[in-house]
């Protein structure tokens, strides 16, 4: 039985990973560290785990792995510290807020011979895996262009504090699409054009924008990463892709498999997704990597590549021109 700890419940996905650990027969959530003591105590209690106020003390125990769900800007410190204690790591996306931080994290994990997997759960959604198969079987011929969205509702909290998040919706959402497409297409982004703005909320980070990528193969991709879903939207957001090939199109809505709840109790409409939980599949895969000592399906380098695109997008927004990517 693998012993796993969670470093911070700052990111809401921690709750989902904790639930996935609870369901998993080969692992147990042993302990929690959180700089928000009350949150940490509450979560530890909920999942019958121990709470630590001292991260080093928690990492000195016989844990096999940790899941890092702290604020984006704190990923580097937490991943490097955990790596130095020889713990395998599943790190919430984005890998970091700065390229140098990501490089340092990858290096620390390599030096300590521990796994660093970045949490891009979209790859594990059955519908996305099917799309990957269809594309690779050339169902619609060669891909020419892809129109994508990763919308959401504005999450608030530290997500809108640039010191902790590194940025707004662009930081939060571009990485999912870029990772998914790099994986499906086995291709790298060549250039990025982007513009962002804050138009929906009174916040200091961007809440909307538009990104146009060109991949090395010439495929043109658009991404709408906006926190533009209204409060009345029946689900938190979306992941949609429409792929245009020389022999047809594939339209994908990752959360289309849902039932609709007309909820009179709370006066709202809700889409209740019933397809396999991708966070659960991601956690399962990470635990298998640790057990089998195999390289992670989604590596630190994958996280780095997506961060490079985000940084280039911000640069493009500032300079008002397309940016050619330089890979680190």
């Amino acid at each position: 039985m693998l012993k796993v700890g969670i470093i911070s419940f700052a990111h809401m996905h921690a709750l989902s990973y904790a639930n996935a650990l609870k369901k998993n027969n080969s692992a147990s959530l042993e302990c929690v560290w959180d700089d928000d003591q009350q949150r940490g105590i509450d979560m530890a209690k909920t999942f019958h785990a121990s709470f630590y106020t001292d991260l080093d003390e928690m990492l000195q125990t016989d844990l096999d792995a940790v899941i890092v769900c702290s604020e984006n800007a704190n990923h580097k410190d937490h991943v490097v510290t955990a790596a130095n204690y020889k713990k395998h790591i599943l790190c919430e996306k984005p890998i970091a807020t700065e390229i140098n931080d990501a490089l340092e994290m990858i290096d620390a994990c390599n030096q300590n011979n521990v796994i660093l997997q970045v949490a891009f759960p979209v790859r594990f959604a059955p519908v996305i895996q099917e799309v990957q198969r269809l594309v690779n079987e050339k169902e619609i011929g060669s891909i020419l262009a892809i129109n994508t969205t990763n919308h959401g509702q504005m999450p608030g909290g530290w997500f809108v504090d640039p010191k902790l998040s590194g940025g707004g919706c662009a930081t939060d959402h571009i990485v999912h699409i870029v990772d998914t497409l790099r994986w499906i297409l086995r291709d790298e982004v060549k250039s990025v054009y982007a513009e962002f703005d804050t138009r929906f909320y009174d916040i200091v980070v961007e809440d909307c924008g538009h990104v146009i990528l060109e991949f090395e193969s010439g495929i043109v991709v658009t991404i709408d990463p906006s926190w533009s879903r209204p409060k009345t939207f029946p689900i938190w957001g979306d992941v949609t892709l429409e792929l245009f090939g020389d022999k047809g199109t594939i339209a994908v809505d990752a959360f289309k498999q849902h039932t609709v709840l007309f909820n009179d109790r709370d006066n709202k409409l809700e889409n209740l997704v019933w397809s396999d939980d991708m966070d659960e599949e991601l956690t399962k895969d990470f635990l298998q990597c640790v057990t089998e000592s195999r390289p992670p399906f989604i590596s630190g380098e994958d996280g780095l590549r997506t961060l490079e695109v985000v940084k280039a997008a911000y640069q493009s927004n500032q300079q008002k021109k397309p940016i050619t990517l330089i890979h680190n």
Binding site: L144, T222, F244
Partner: peptide, 20 residues
Amino acid sequence: AKKVDSRYMTVHIRHKDNSF
């Protein structure tokens, strides 16, 4: 704007009021 294969075009417009 980008045009692919004379069949596909994607156009990013930033309006005067800064909307997209």
